[in-house]
Design a protein around this nucleic acid. Structure first.
Lengths: 125, 125
DNA sequence: TTAACTGTATTATTTATCATAATACAGTTT
DNA sequence: AAACTGTATTATGATAAATAATACAGTTAA
């Protein structure tokens, strides 16, 4: 399904969160599509089921999936209206990165190109 | 000089790195200006000197400061030409964030506003 | 109904990282 | 020479990540 870097220092469960977000955002996984079961994925990736569980819990908390006991975990429908609180948090995460980018000599054109790349390839509204 | 959040979970040395980057990027600290000595800053912030040392080592590795044994640590001259490798790394850090931003319903206008904000207030070339 | 699947929770253990602490060494400044 | 600088090393405690072993509850399908 995807790759994990065991020696990167980045926690496995965070890698899982990131990878599933990517699949959901890119539309590779569709709404209500079932994610692998906790035990299955743990077996496939040879990591502990608790690690998978932690990742799923985080994805559920962030609204990317929903879990039903006995049935499984599924891709959540994206909310229609723009979530102001989340956007504010996003701004805070992005700001220092942009500051550093400009400092390193990145031009506005280079940035806008990244933005275009990031906006492309999405299943738009 | 700045504040540290001891209970945020973010490592102290990373907070130090971030804060010094900010001061350098914003031009509050000028080129060749001396940073506080490892022991001084440790005393001021009541943290261990080793923690300061770790932050300075990181800042030096990223090219923000240079250290001279016996003399101190100083703000590094910014490189003139745009550092391609660093910009590539910056793109990789920024891309998933932008993807998520769009997914959460952030508009291109909102993003461009952040970019303007981030680009303003810098001592430009 | 029963067996095999789901998510969820708990407790214990190991490992790695962060931070502190106490030194020591080498170079610079006054 | 004394007091400052950065740098390195070793040890210790605290915390988070990951593993491991169970257990419980709800769902699905034979």
């Amino acid at each position: 399904m995807f790759e994990l870097d065991m020696r990167s220092g980045e926690p496995i469960y965070e890698q899982l969160v990131y990878q599933f977000k990517r699949l959901i955002i890119e539309g590779v996984m569709e709404v209500d599509e079932k994610l692998p079961s906790v035990r299955d994925l743990a077996g496939q990736l040879t990591v502990n089921p608790n690690t998978i569980q932690k990742a799923y819990r985080e994805l559920e908390a962030e609204g990317y999936i929903y879990s039903v006991k006995g049935r499984g975990s599924f891709v959540q429908q994206r909310e229609e209206q723009s979530n102001t609180a989340k956007i504010e948090e996003m701004k805070k995460r992005m700001f220092p990165l942009l500051r550093e980018a400009f400092y390193l000599g990145m031009t506005r054109e280079e940035l806008e190109e990244i933005i275009r790349d990031a906006n492309g390839g999405m299943d738009d509204d």
